[in-house]
């Protein structure tokens, strides 16, 4: 798979000395959905802003579709669509004219048919003659996406695209993003909703304090870092874990009513059968068992806490 976005040794130090990005290296493959996760202030928006031309880099190089974002900014930017985090819109414009304006900015001839297609795909066609100030927050978010798609970009940046939108709209947006990917559009999204990254991303990057600390395929990440746990719900509470079970490193929970065993699914013998047999031997009765697996959120939290 070829590279759509290449970031090399990128750094950003703002006036006043705050270092927002430190020597970032990142390649995004053509046609993939890449989720960039990170806590507030980690540098996600700064990274996107530099790529899109809103912030000057202090050092490093960025290419989009092989075009340098500084030396060949016209070619690079014409490939890019940006959906910003904030709901920044012109209140007095109509939906249709705002989207048409965006298309013109990117040097494309007017194409009402294409604009109609975009507006319909975002359920905005009925609102095309409405002033933007009359739209709900969710509608404004859709409008920003429509504006970003108005010039048929090959790479879309979604900066917290579903912040503050309801569940239904979020699902709609996920479907839209999947549809764009099927059309070959490369997508980089930043999000606080781990569920979003888990649902959509092919690869995940984690940024912390201006540094990329991890880039991995989502499945591999969850496989490598995901832990599985078996919880045994006891018939009678235990004051302490018997010495005979020390090898399992069990954790007492629910005031002694439950024992939790963390195991590695990669091992040939995870030890579950042995544990249950040893519980039986120790005379510890149980009424139920259940297993849980780490979510991406658990993995993310453990990474950024380090």
């Amino acid at each position: 798979m070829t590279t759509m976005l290449s970031v090399s040794n990128l750094s950003k130090v703002y006036e006043g000395g705050f270092t927002a990005l430190k020597d970032i290296n990142l390649d995004i493959r053509r046609g993939e959905i890449f989720a960039l996760l990170g806590p507030n202030g980690a540098g996600k928006t700064t990274l996107i802003s530099i790529i899109c031309g809103l912030v000057n880099a202090s050092a490093g190089k960025v290419t989009v579709g092989g075009h340098d974002i500084v030396d060949d900014y016209r070619a690079a930017r014409s490939l890019i669509g940006l959906v910003p985090q904030e709901l920044t819109t012109d209140a007095f414009e109509t939906v249709f004219s705002a989207v048409s304006f965006s298309r013109g900015l990117f040097g494309k001839a007017p194409d009402p048919v294409y604009i109609e297609k975009v507006l319909r795909s975002l359920s905005l066609w009925d609102k095309r003659n409405n002033k933007i100030m009359t739209l709900s927050g969710g509608m404004k978010r859709r409008l920003l996406i429509a504006k970003a798609l108005s010039h048929e970009p090959r790479m879309l940046f979604l900066d917290e695209p579903t912040a503050g939108v309801d569940v239904e709209l979020r699902r709609d947006m996920w479907n839209l993003v999947r549809g764009l990917r099927e059309d070959g559009v490369t997508i980089l999204l930043t999000t606080h909703y781990i569920e979003e990254a888990e649902e959509m991303a092919d690869r995940i990057g984690v940024i912390r304090k201006g540094e990329i600390i991890l880039v991995e395929n989502k499945a591999t990440l969850m496989h490598q870092l995901g832990k599985k746990q078996l919880t045994v719900h006891l018939q009678s509470p235990l004051d302490a874990v018997p010495d005979s079970l020390a090898a399992y490193a069990l954790e007492r929970g629910e005031d002694g009513h439950a024992l939790t065993y963390t195991y590695d699914t990669e091992r040939e013998h995870p030890g579950i059968t042995d544990l249950l047999a040893d519980l039986n031997t120790a005379g510890i009765g149980f009424k139920d068992v259940n297993t849980t697996q780490s979510s991406l959120e658990d993995i993310f939290v453990s990474l950024v806490k380090k």
Binding site: L54, T88, D90, L105
Partner: peptide, 17 residues
């Protein structure tokens, strides 16, 4: 006004000199 509302992002990120 676009600086105030934030819509300037669109002009600055467009392939416009």
């Amino acid at each position: 006004f676009p600086r105030f509302t934030g819509t300037i992002y669109e002009v600055l990120s467009a392939p416009v000199s």
